[in-house]
Write a protein that binds this DNA or RNA. Sequence first.
DNA 1: AGCACGCCGACT
DNA 2: GTCGGCGTGCTC
Length: 841
Amino acid sequence: LSQLIFKEDASDFQERITYFVDVIVPVPIPGTFTYRVPNIHADAIQIGCRVIVQFGRKKIYTGIIANIHQRPPENYRAKYIIDLLENEPSVNQKQIAFFYWVASYYMSTIGEVFNAALPSGLKLTSESFVQLNPNLDDSQDAIEYSEREKLLLESLSNNDKMSYDEISNLLELKQIHPVLKSLIQKESILLFEQVKDKFQPKKVKKIKLSCRYFNDESALEKLFESLEKKFKQQEVLLKYLTKIPIDSGRSINDSGILKSELLSENISPSSLSTLIKNEVFEAFEEQVSRFESNINFKKKVFALSENQLEAKSAIKDLFSEKEVVLLHGITGSGKTEIYIELIQEQLALGKQVLYLLPEIALTTQIVSRLMKVFGNEVGVFHSKHSDNERVEVWQGIISGKFKFVVGVRSAIFLPFNDLALIIVDEEHESSYKQYDPSPRYNARDSAIVLAHEQGAKVLLGTATPALDTYYNALNGKYGMVEMMERYGNATLPKFEIADMLDERKKKKIKGDFTSHLLDEMEARLDKGEQVILFQNRRGYSPYLTCNDCNHVPQCENCSVSLTYHMYSDTLKCHYCGFQEAVPQICTACGSAAVKTVGFGTEKLEEDIKLIFPQAKTQRMDQDTTRSKYSYQSIIDRFEKGETDVLIGTQMVSKGLDFDKVTLVGVFDFDRMIHFPDFRSHERAFQLVTQVSGRAGRKNNQGKVVIQTASAGTPLLNNIISHDYLSFYQSEIIERESFHYPPFYRLIKIILKSKDKDVVESASIQYGKTLKAEFGEQRILGPQEPMISRIRNAYLRELFVKIEKSDVDISKVKKLLLDKSNQLTKDAKYKSVRVIFDVDPL
DNA sequence: AGCACGCCGACT
DNA sequence: GTCGGCGTGCTC
């Protein structure tokens, strides 16, 4: 009896349980939001399921369930979930944990991470619409309407719905709300929210022979008899049978053929539809992938060289003790082939692999190479892909279709659950860091955390490691494998310095060109060889230099070049705010020939056209590669030899292998190294090394000419002798003595306000608070950033430098946040926005 | 982020 | 008055 009662009680109790879920909503507000679960969904809810919720007065968002519990909120009434979108979670629990890590490490909200992580095809949002109230006819005449209201009602009677924008345009009114409010009161209109369309799977129409005929030859014979005089229909049937003969298996028939295929070659759709009507054929739809391609792929198309095999086994050995291994291989050493073998090994074990690439155009080349090896097993996740394609990759990972994904930065958020290997190619690339919008995450660093959570290994590959990475490798935190020989017979390019100081004295410079470079170019062009000219567009900030000794004024505190500010005629350090008046004579040699080095131009191409009128030139930069295929067409033309001189920005420094390029010219080297940033030397080393890799592959040695006034400096010597280690050793000393990464963590804090005086005093106030909290020497600034006003908002920036060892960085972050909340609570500083950028680049 | 509310100043 | 422009507060 007691058991019976217990049972009754239990079921009774069961029915009354009310579930609440904490939902991650894609908004930049800290925390999750608690919703109540309607009973109909009580059994189906799971952590990671997408739900539709109303957030705020009207907005509808897709959120994900982060937690399920039975505690009703105390201070407010929870809204109900509007809908549960799925019975199987789109986001797994490992991902949710990872999202939380990203949010907390990069000081963003979980909603922002969620927003960055999910392709928009998986996130429906609503839009507000207005419609006529359908039951309004009767008392209509009694109501008086204003002119605007009449206009709107008339328009609504012609359209079944109108968006706010449309109404605003119609009424020529910015604030339509008063009008709507009045009409709602008069019960003439209704507002409603409509969810924007979501992911659409791609479908194809197919045709198959009805099973009635397929297995039955006599039935088929009869069918032909009945079609005796219907030649058109016979034709269709015959064509089908040539594609799928009667004796092919059942399943082959069931998979049918494409309707479009059957209809090609003057077969009329109407005869086919008659046959479908008569149940000879069956029409059906099949969901297909947007990624099917006809690339013939072969499992293995190459053999590793001895060096590559050695490197590969060294990597595998290191993986047994290290989670992260750096593969430092010079350009052309054949890293990709090693990646491919490592990937194949993991895929053979049924594990997942992620291959991260920087967000640059080189992806096309690597992706097509990987597709040739892995065919349709590989999911490609790239910004040029549509939302639908992104959703397909997402779902393909869940379904197990894609074990291997090649993707850019945001691919780290994909629903992996069994990763064994993450490859971060071109590990030093700055595009792994997202700057805007929040979350300001670094995909390389996050990938290491992701791998740790999934028990996977990380392989960082590059020819020019980021200093931080190399530091970790030398210290044994990461393993390291180095490949210092080019694949095959290829040799490294030969560097030459075109000394601008010297040529300037001898008055041999034409425009931006040294005679040295021009002579080399002429020789190459005469031989029908190709030239790449590299001009870095970064570093537009002007600085001061002495024409006689090439001295550039430096900041006393920061080891960066001072930036020239014209309006105040001062030199400023944009790191610590130090400033001084512009000196009349050079502080190093006393010469009066101090000059500002002004803004670089894109006039190189014009100059070339004047100097070499017969040469065909092409520019490759942001402006000439706007559209989706322009990049590829520039490359194609260059590859075919239709272009002689390719002039470009960093874009030309990446992965392009052209056999006929024998000369690379580097411009603006000085501006690169004098860019006011503690990483300017590192960047210069990386860029010049990368771009030099474009010169001479295969059998002929290429040449790189660097135009510079800094001939003989250690940095330049390290670059031209391909000596990364020496570069590293001198740079790391600077980093340590000036308290920069990898010894110190950096957090950049940006304060924003429409009011210049408000940011000014708010940043000073905040700076004071932080200095009191962390100590004077750990806080830099506040100072005006180089671009001090963005979209009418004035900016100030502060840097927090915290030593890596013995400091709990999460406590530091919490304190930064608390102090910033305190600051903006002050009525004076209400309008100030505070932005945190952890590990800024 | 969006959205509504409320206050202020300009213009009819 | 009416309309547009912000600044401010709130979102489960």
